[in-house]
Amino acid sequence: MKARQQWVAFVTILTREVRRFMRIWLQTLLPPAITIVLYFVIFGTLIGPRIGAMAGHTYIDFVVPGLIMMSVITNSYSNVVSSFYGNKFQGSIEEILVSPVPNYVILLGFVFGGVARGIAVGAIVTLLSLLFTSLQLHHLAVILGMVLLTAILFSIAGLINAIFAESFDDISIIPTFVLTPLTYLGGVFYSIDMLPEFWQAVSRANPILYMVNAFRYGFLGTSDIPVSGAFLMVSAFIALSYVYAIHLLARGRRLRR
């Protein structure tokens, strides 16, 4: 396929992905918005004032970037995992598999569909947060860069999950048992300075901690970890998961009989 045709194919997949989550916005855009508003109300307005300052900021200011990041992670992942698995389940993945689209274009199409959903929900949540606090902007490039890389990484992860999945149960195992715990323990709600030495060290093995902290740094200018290290690490994870996903697509297992 010529480069131009590949671009058309990429735009086609991306358009179809965006159209899908827009069509079912009641399932894709509204629930995360409601959930996060509840978090804002409970942790920001009700409990927040009693917690006092966290890492030198009011609790709501501290928690908002983490909650935005949490919704980006969950939504980019679940967009790709449910869309790709849905295509497998209904057989419509064959429409793409019989066509000349190269594997990397398939991957990028679905991944940027997930990125679009992650960023759409992130933007909605950010706007809603303005009802509860006024956001500072410390470093816009860090904010945008980190949110983009995070959305890419979790979209690829969602794709890998979907390739392996053979039932609808299989697409909820990783989000429930891996993603949610890592996110909750990833410094969304607290600064790891509060933890004993040992648990600080354990927390540093959690990649989500780096993403959340770097993202928060973009707003508040404070972070538990070095921000450049976070960018390096997320990029490395993206490279690894990209290579693995391409390998899975090329081998065709669980896609081609």
Partner: peptide, 15 residues
């Protein structure tokens, strides 16, 4: 209509 237009897109045909 979307099913057809999308399929054409997979073959690289402009919109």
């Amino acid at each position: 209509i979307d099913i057809l237009v999308t399929q054409a897109g997979y073959y690289g045909l402009p919109r």
